[in-house]
Write a protein that binds this DNA or RNA. Structure first.
Lengths: 150, 150
DNA sequence: TATTGTTATACTCTATAACTATA
DNA sequence: TATAGTTATAGAGTATAACAATA
């Protein structure tokens, strides 16, 4: 009701602004994660790429870019560096020679394995403190939001 | 149960990874917001600073930095540029001369007013599509998360 | 001595456009 | 003509440390 009056209404408080609330929540959650990653000199972005690649299997770069929330030009640089570090391999697709198929290497998987226990422990601790049910509810809602807008 | 076995468990799917889910959700939500801001040549960060300042009234920079999710060195540059553009004013605090108190100007408020209708309309449309109740629930959970970790 | 904010620096990501090669 | 990816470039933010002024 009264949606036509919205031009006169003030903006929501920043706590109830979805973009700001998502950002603040993420910053809060990322604090210990950043601490963990910085110890092993792997950037947040590279970690996301590893996670996405391990999950998706061999994939083209556009897919990685979308799922890791990176632009293609950024991904090109990141993937080049990671290939040099032996964390992944690139190959031209046989079906479509425009595509580059990227595969995680054993060394790349090693990085994930190395951090998995601590990563899981952090999440478990957070979920316990936050409440498991609320955490599930939150993840459900985030998935729904993600799926809606595209 | 079986939390002691976590070292052997694989990581959660990226859809159920809280940091990744928060990031993807935010990217989805930000798409139209970025489109709006780019039309008026105001960066996402400056927009956050304006929002926080309007809400908080005259505040020191540390507070803005925390609430706008920016590091102090980044904020220093942003605030310098915004002061040059007449969007805010800086003054040394009388109680504690180490502190800089920043105040939004009428011109700064103008930027917010200019974008408020479109911003509210975007959110209203999104909340309708997403479901008002779910949106409230999501914002409650995000607030809770934000408050927990600090 | 600790705190607030600034400056400096190296690195990285963003955003856009232009380009190559394939389709 | 359109698409996948690369390269180039300008701008901006990140992260850290060192510093000045003040408490």
């Amino acid at each position: 009701m009264a949606d036509d009056m919205q031009d006169q209404r003030p903006l929501r408080s920043t706590d109830r602004s979805l973009p700001i609330a998502l950002l603040r929540a993420r910053e809060a959650v990322m604090e210990p994660v950043r601490e963990m990653l910085s110890r092993s000199k792997i950037s947040e972005q590279k970690w996301r790429v590893l996670r996405v690649m391990e999950e998706a299997g061999p994939v083209e770069q556009s897919v990685i870019a979308e799922r890791a929330c990176l632009l293609l030009p950024s991904l090109t640089r990141i993937v080049t560096a990671m290939e040099a570090d032996g964390l992944l391999e690139r190959a031209v697709s046989k079906e479509d020679r425009r595509k580059t198929i990227v595969t995680i290497t054993e060394k790349g998987r090693g990085i994930i394995r190395e951090h998995a226990p601590e990563s899981i422990a952090m999440f478990t601790r957070l979920a316990d403190e936050f409440g498991r049910e609320d955490m599930d509810r939150l993840l459900d809602l985030l998935e729904k939001l993600q799926r809606m807008e595209r």
